[in-house]
Amino acid sequence: MSEKPFNPVAAWQDAIQRWEHELNAWSGQFTQSEEFGALIGQATKATIYAQKAMAEQTETVLRSLNLPSKSQIEEISQRLAVIEDHIAQIRLEMGEGAQKTPGAEPRRTRKPPAEPKADER
């Protein structure tokens, strides 16, 4: 049996792959446990409350500095998105979408290629 010559890069990649599999396997077991569910549920809740508190604080500071807040910018962005949607809708109704003329359509008569017979395979 002939051995392959030692390749340090391949060995490095093998080591990384092994580490990846082992860590993922360990984590896979943990993420299926009830403790994980409890932990992630609490962490998500805490993050939401922290984000909410931070957003309220920031909003107050921005208002006192006479600067637009995130929610005000989001409101403008939403209005712009609605306008863009309406423009897109009008363009579609004016026929700027896919070609709708039957002449430009390809023929819809294609048949699948014949399957080779058993003795031709």
Partner: peptide
């Protein structure tokens, strides 16, 4: 869907809070 089942465990995952706040 094992990963999502534990992640969104009914006993701990407050989906209404997420939807309401976000």
């Amino acid at each position: 869907m094992h990963l999502f089942q534990t992640w969104a465990d009914k006993r701990y995952f407050d989906v209404d809070l997420l939807v309401r706040e976000l």
